[in-house]
Amino acid sequence: MKDMSAAQWRPFLSSFVKELTQNLTPTLLAQVMRHSGARFAHDRRLAPAATVADMELAMNLVWREIGWGEVIIKEAPDWLELSHRNAPLEATFGVDNQAWSVAFLEGAYEAWMHQLGADPRLRMTTANALDVSGSMVFRFGQ
């Protein structure tokens, strides 16, 4: 397989994002990204996880392999909070497109949670698209 460096992809992705944003609504773009994230997760199945720490480790193995940062998972009374940092979404799609590009992570995380046995009625939502530390926060629950 040939080397696929970021420099090779920048011109293509820049043109592709411009075309997408000119022809699709933000809602449709978010749906496409969410479905893409779910497909990504289905293609990269996680190891079985009995604890939240096991889930975090399994997810981070995937993210580290592709250079997509890391996730920290915290338990709250009614949901799990996932803080993802250093994903290349802003660098790839631009700061103006964060509202829909973060849906990729929503879709991936939700699919992984369901794969690991979570109730299919539970959903992943974005709690904070990008904070000052560069983290995106998601919540998994009702």
Score class of each variant (00 low, 15 high):
F140V: 11
E19D: 15
N86Q: 07
E65Y: 09
K2W: 11
L80A: 00
A111D: 05
R39A: 15
R34M: 12
F40L: 09
A127H: 10
R10P: 08
E90G: 03
L13I: 14
A111M: 02
R123W: 01
G37N: 05
A108F: 07
W79M: 06
G67K: 00
F16K: 09
V132Q: 14
T92Q: 02
A58C: 03
N97H: 13
R10H: 15
M59G: 10
D3S: 12
A103K: 02
K74D: 09
T21P: 06
E70I: 06
A99N: 10
E19F: 15
M4F: 15
H114D: 06
V137R: 10
F93T: 02
R64L: 07
A53H: 12
A7I: 10
Q8L: 14
L122H: 06
V17F: 09
N23Y: 07
R39I: 08
D3K: 08
T25R: 11
M124C: 15
F138E: 14
Q31W: 07
Y109Q: 04
F104G: 02
V32F: 14
H42S: 10
M59N: 02
Q8V: 11
L28Y: 15
L82W: 02
A49D: 04
R123G: 10
D78C: 01
L24D: 14
M59K: 07
L130Q: 14
A49W: 03
G107Y: 07
D43V: 03
A7C: 08
D131P: 09
D119T: 02
R45Q: 09
T51E: 04
L82A: 10
F12T: 15
T92E: 00
A118K: 02
R10E: 14
S83F: 01
T125N: 10
A41R: 01
A7K: 12
V62R: 05
G141C: 08
P26F: 11
T27E: 10
M113N: 01
M33I: 10
W63D: 09
L57K: 13
H42N: 08
P48G: 11
E56P: 04
A58F: 02
V62S: 06
L28A: 15
P26A: 13
G37L: 04
H35W: 09
V132W: 13
S101E: 01
P77Q: 09
G69F: 00
H42L: 04
R121L: 09
F16R: 11
T21N: 11
L61Q: 06
I66Q: 05
I73K: 00
E70D: 14
V95Q: 13
E90D: 08
A6T: 11
W68A: 09
S15V: 05
R64M: 05
L80G: 00
A50E: 03
S36C: 12
A103M: 05
E65F: 03
A87H: 01
R123N: 04
A47K: 02
R85Y: 03
V102M: 01
